[in-house]
């Protein structure tokens, strides 16, 4: 579905990603793991057309993405729930959700809105409230809901769990599995290797801007050096 080949990206004249290769098949949950500053967000921004690639290619369903504008990429069904959520804080929760459906012209937007409220009753209670006044967990639900409102085929999730209580993280990650069950392919970016790999089919490990490791989740979970590096376990 998505194939990234030999991708290099940077800011100004500083290279941040070196020769990245990554593939995602339809219906998969793929985890992308890496510590702070590894380049995870940079990769996702490049996928969304927010950063121009230096070299390499990004193909999605056979189409080259690397020179497309962000709105074209969104139209193709790729959606990012960005790190830090980036909600429209001065807008109500409902308006944020509707912004997610901005490009949609079909008649089922209302229906999907109700679906989001069923998924997140907390958002339903606060639909008229300004998004900036929500708690961290609620904001993350709103950001995820906003992405879902676009009916993405490929959903990119950037560190949803950042700063949230473990119970909310569990709930959100379990929901990701459910979303995949409904036909959405997911690229899950997380720092918590265990939580992510327990839900993902496969994983990639990004270190200092290079893809250092990849494989099926169980293999990565039992990989000794990873366990030492990320879980502090010997």
């Amino acid at each position: 579905m998505l194939a990234i080949k030999d991708l290099s990206v940077g800011y100004g004249d500083t290279k941040v990603l070196w020769d990245i290769n990554l593939e995602i098949a339809p219906g998969e949950i793929v985890a992308l793991i890496g510590v702070n500053g590894a380049g995870k967000t940079t990769l996702l921004k490049t996928l969304m057309g927010l950063l121009p690639p230096w070299t390499g290619s990004i193909r999605y369903r056979g189409q080259e993405l690397s020179r497309l504008d962000t709105h074209r990429i969104v139209k193709l069904g790729i959606n990012l729930t960005p790190q830090g959520r980036l909600l429209f804080t001065g807008m109500s929760v409902e308006e944020n959700l509707l912004m997610g459906a901005y490009l949609r012209r079909d008649s089922e937007v209302k229906h999907d809105l109700k679906h989001i409220y069923d998924l997140f009753p907390r958002l339903s209670e606060r639909k008229r409230q300004r998004a900036g006044t929500l708690s961290g967990g609620e904001q993350q639900m709103c950001a995820l809901g906003r992405s879902l409102m676009s009916r993405p085929s490929l959903l990119l999730l950037d560190e949803m769990s950042l700063g949230l209580a473990p119970i909310v993280v569990e709930m959100l990650l379990d929901l990701v599995v459910e979303i995949r069950g409904q036909g959405t392919t997911v690229l899950l970016v997380e720092q918590d290797i265990e939580e992510a790999l327990l839900r993902a089919d496969r994983g990639y490990v990004l270190e200092g801007g290079r893809m250092e490791m990849s494989g099926p989740s169980p293999d990565l979970l039992s990989n000794a050096s990873l366990r030492v590096a990320y879980l502090g376990l010997a």
């Binding site: 969104v74 960005p82 980036l86 490009l103």
Partner: peptide, 15 residues
């Protein structure tokens, strides 16, 4: 209004 609150999220909505 969305754009006034942030161009990056606005672009991510397809604007």
């Amino acid at each position: 209004r969305a754009t006034s609150m942030g161009t990056e999220p606005a672009r991510l909505m397809g604007l």
